[in-house]
Computed example of a mutant assay.
Amino acid sequence: MNSKCIALPLTNAELYLHEQWVEPELGKAWMATLLRETLWEQPEVFIYGRHYPTPRLVAWYSDPAVRYGYSGLDHPALAWTPLLQAIRTRVEHTCEQAFNGVLLNHYRTGQDSMGWHSDNEAVLGHNPVIASLSLGKTRRFDLRRKGAQRIEHSLLLTHGSLLIMRGTTQHYWQHQIAKTRKTLASRLNLTFRWIKM
Results as ranks from 00 to 15, higher is better:
residue 190 L to N: 07
residue 94 T to E: 03
residue 72 G to R: 11
residue 21 W to F: 07
residue 163 L to H: 02
residue 33 T to Y: 10
residue 80 W to E: 13
residue 116 W to S: 14
residue 58 V to N: 08
residue 19 E to K: 09
residue 35 L to P: 13
residue 103 L to F: 08
residue 147 G to R: 15
residue 98 A to M: 12
residue 127 N to C: 10
residue 36 R to Y: 04
residue 168 T to H: 07
residue 131 A to D: 10
residue 26 L to V: 08
residue 150 R to E: 08
residue 40 W to P: 11
residue 72 G to D: 14
residue 42 Q to C: 11
residue 179 K to Y: 00
residue 144 R to H: 00
residue 115 G to W: 07
residue 94 T to R: 15
residue 147 G to W: 12
residue 24 P to K: 09
residue 10 L to G: 03
residue 59 A to W: 04
residue 155 L to S: 00
residue 1 M to W: 01
residue 48 Y to H: 15
residue 80 W to F: 09
residue 112 D to I: 13
residue 102 V to G: 15
residue 184 L to Q: 07
residue 141 F to V: 02
residue 44 E to K: 10
residue 114 M to N: 09
residue 166 R to F: 02
residue 29 A to G: 04
residue 78 L to V: 09
residue 152 E to Q: 10
residue 149 Q to L: 14
residue 39 L to I: 15
residue 138 T to K: 03
residue 129 V to W: 05
residue 157 L to H: 04
residue 91 V to H: 05
residue 147 G to E: 12
residue 149 Q to V: 15
residue 128 P to F: 13
residue 71 S to H: 07
residue 189 N to V: 03
residue 50 R to C: 02
residue 99 F to M: 12
residue 20 Q to E: 09
residue 48 Y to T: 12
residue 185 A to D: 15
residue 119 D to P: 04
residue 32 A to K: 11
residue 153 H to T: 12
residue 41 E to A: 02
residue 119 D to Y: 01
residue 24 P to G: 11
residue 50 R to G: 08
residue 36 R to N: 15
residue 39 L to R: 15
residue 29 A to C: 00
residue 59 A to R: 00
residue 159 H to C: 00
residue 62 S to P: 06
residue 125 G to Y: 05
residue 38 T to A: 13
residue 49 G to I: 03
residue 118 S to K: 14
residue 175 H to C: 10
residue 68 Y to P: 02
residue 196 K to G: 09
residue 78 L to F: 06
residue 157 L to V: 00
residue 197 M to I: 13
residue 47 I to N: 07
residue 10 L to D: 00
residue 111 Q to H: 13
residue 104 L to N: 13
residue 184 L to I: 10
residue 162 L to T: 10
residue 98 A to E: 06
residue 173 W to Y: 01
residue 8 L to K: 07
residue 193 R to D: 07
residue 139 R to A: 06
residue 146 K to M: 11
residue 157 L to G: 00
residue 93 H to L: 11
residue 177 I to A: 07
residue 3 S to E: 14
residue 67 R to Y: 12
residue 38 T to S: 10
residue 132 S to F: 08
residue 182 K to I: 03
residue 159 H to Y: 02
residue 166 R to E: 03
residue 2 N to A: 07
residue 121 E to T: 09
residue 197 M to R: 14
residue 87 I to C: 11
residue 140 R to L: 14
residue 143 L to Q: 06
residue 42 Q to M: 12
residue 36 R to C: 12
residue 135 L to S: 00
residue 88 R to T: 10
residue 9 P to H: 05
residue 25 E to I: 14
residue 187 R to D: 02
residue 101 G to V: 05
residue 55 P to C: 08
residue 74 D to W: 00
residue 116 W to N: 14
residue 152 E to F: 01
residue 104 L to G: 15
